[in-house]
Computed example of a mutant assay.
Amino acid sequence: MPFHTTPARRQLVVVLLLAFAVVGGAIRYWAPNPSTLRDLGSLMLVLWVPVIGNVIAFLVRRVRLRRTPFDLPFAPELLLEISPLAPPPRLAQPLAGDGCALVVGTEGFTVRLSQPLSAWLAAGRPVQVQAQFLKPGMALARFAPETPFRIVARQQLVGQGRVLQVLPTRDG
């Protein structure tokens, strides 16, 4: 009969290893030093080490440590005209998703676009898209209408563009 792991069995293993660690800690605390009993307590504590990473990952998934604007529905802040580089950049892997960085001078700002990167790169001509910044408080001051910028994705220059319009935000 094959052994199937389930979340309940995983939780049981974690609880058992935690119990071993607590008992091992108690044995180490009260056992004379040096002794075989103290070494056994140390061994019981070490059994817990492989599980710690899984417990931390579980807690991080349960408790979102920080929320970003990208966790919320798309809320555009800029209207942009962007165009891919000519000739198109050679990428090791096709671009996926809508995230990239807009670079003005030596400063880069993370954005997500209203269209996937692959769509406007494939168009081969200038297109209009909307953009939302990860940190709008820092970025919006640098992006007045007609500001030129470069587009970086996967640490590679893939396009250029200019700001057409700063859009009104939900906050006013």
Score class of each variant (00 low, 15 high):
98 D>M: 10
158 V>D: 04
115 Q>E: 15
38 R>S: 15
147 T>H: 01
131 A>L: 05
67 R>M: 09
143 F>E: 02
142 R>I: 00
23 V>C: 07
151 I>M: 07
55 V>H: 06
42 S>L: 13
113 L>P: 01
30 W>A: 11
132 Q>M: 09
34 P>H: 01
151 I>F: 05
161 G>R: 04
79 L>E: 14
170 R>H: 14
5 T>C: 00
106 T>S: 15
72 L>P: 00
46 V>N: 09
93 Q>Y: 13
47 L>Y: 08
68 T>K: 09
119 A>F: 10
85 L>N: 03
33 N>P: 02
79 L>S: 11
161 G>W: 05
159 G>V: 01
99 G>Q: 15
49 V>A: 12
60 V>Y: 10
100 C>Q: 03
120 W>F: 04
74 F>I: 03
34 P>A: 03
140 L>P: 02
164 L>N: 07
106 T>D: 15
127 V>L: 04
93 Q>M: 13
63 V>I: 11
58 F>N: 13
60 V>M: 12
36 T>C: 07
63 V>Y: 15
105 G>W: 00
66 R>Y: 14
12 L>W: 14
98 D>T: 13
149 F>H: 03
103 V>E: 09
156 Q>R: 09
51 V>H: 11
119 A>L: 11
120 W>M: 00
68 T>Y: 08
50 P>R: 07
4 H>G: 06
10 R>Q: 15
25 G>P: 03
40 L>F: 14
85 L>K: 04
56 I>Q: 09
34 P>E: 03
92 A>H: 10
135 K>T: 08
33 N>H: 14
123 A>S: 14
162 R>F: 05
103 V>S: 05
154 R>K: 11
105 G>V: 05
101 A>T: 10
73 P>Y: 06
7 P>S: 01
85 L>H: 06
91 L>R: 03
23 V>Q: 01
38 R>W: 13
171 D>Y: 12
73 P>F: 04
146 E>C: 07
115 Q>A: 10
65 L>H: 11
13 V>G: 08
49 V>C: 10
103 V>G: 00
108 G>C: 00
25 G>D: 07
140 L>E: 08
57 A>E: 15
141 A>Y: 07
42 S>M: 12
8 A>V: 09
167 L>E: 06
140 L>H: 00
76 P>K: 02
4 H>N: 13
42 S>Y: 12
120 W>V: 03
88 P>M: 02
68 T>E: 09
3 F>M: 11
133 F>C: 03
139 A>H: 06
103 V>T: 09
158 V>K: 04
2 P>V: 08
82 I>A: 07
18 L>T: 15
120 W>H: 03
110 T>V: 14
172 G>H: 01
95 L>R: 00
113 L>A: 04
49 V>Y: 08
91 L>C: 02
157 L>S: 03
51 V>T: 12
48 W>E: 05
127 V>K: 05
58 F>C: 01
115 Q>R: 13
